[in-house]
Amino acid sequence: MPCVAVVADDAGSTVIDAGQSPGHARLVQSAMAGAGLPAARRLVYTHHHWDHTWGACAWEVEEIVGHQTGAELLAAESRRPWSHEYMEREMAADPRLGPSFRARARAMPTWDDFVVRPPTRTFTDGLTLPGGVEVRHVGGGHAPDSTVVAVPDPGVMLLGDCFYPPPFHLREPGPAGEEIDLPLITALVAEGFDWYVDSHSPPWRPPSP
């Protein structure tokens, strides 16, 4: 499962990424309640990929924040007839979709009440949310709308998947298509945050100078 982060605020928590399914979102909500955190007030998408956005329909929030490019892509995704049968047809037409679509099928035992939710508040370069949470578009090869979220106090940057290679079905043939975006992650680490959190690894600290 991808990382879901929570920035707690007395006025209501900001949740970074929605989870990969409604079931995943409900696990996060249960953990928030168990920890005594305020209920979610908003979602922030680091990018439009399914494992970061498909849980959104299980959240009751005032707004969903995301990059304008991602909003357009998710609007298109919301019009697709998602079901196991639909994904089987798509994989038969394009076998390269297999890794992504099989993972989606495992995450979605039921499609009851499922909808893809595009952002309700968009930006192009960046914006600052209540509590000093900074949202910034960085782009890159993984997704055109890749966004990082900086929380200056306590010194954490949430990276999403921004420096990862593109999804399997979009990669160029050969080893170069599997390489991370080293210039991008190097530049972000140079900003000097105490902790960095990408979406599929434990939190990590940059090496000491």
Rank of each mutant, 00 (worst) to 15 (best):
V65C: 06
G34N: 06
A75H: 12
Y196L: 15
I16D: 00
A103D: 04
V148C: 07
G66Y: 05
D94Y: 07
M1Q: 10
D9W: 09
V15H: 04
V149A: 05
V65R: 01
Q68K: 11
P22D: 05
D161H: 13
V44A: 05
G19D: 06
R205L: 14
S83Y: 15
A105Y: 00
G174W: 03
V44I: 14
E60W: 07
V6G: 01
R171V: 05
E90H: 02
V189A: 02
D51V: 02
A31V: 12
E72F: 05
F163C: 02
G140N: 07
A93R: 14
V116I: 14
A92M: 14
L127M: 11
F193S: 01
G126L: 10
W204C: 03
A40M: 09
D17K: 04
L158D: 05
H47W: 11
M157R: 06
W82H: 12
D94A: 09
I16S: 02
V138R: 08
A25Q: 02
R205N: 12
S201N: 15
G23H: 06
R26V: 07
H67N: 12
T120D: 15
A76Q: 15
W195Y: 08
E77C: 13
H24S: 14
R205I: 14
V15M: 07
G141R: 15
A76P: 11
D51I: 03
H169N: 09
P81K: 12
H169P: 00
S201W: 12
E179W: 00
E85G: 09
A5K: 07
F193T: 00
P2V: 02
V115K: 06
A187D: 15
G192V: 12
P152G: 03
L27A: 14
P207D: 11
T14L: 15
F193K: 02
R26G: 00
F101G: 01
R89M: 12
S21H: 10
G126T: 10
V4Q: 06
L73F: 14
Q20I: 11
G160Y: 02
A176R: 07
R106G: 04
T147W: 09
M87N: 09
P152N: 02
R26N: 09
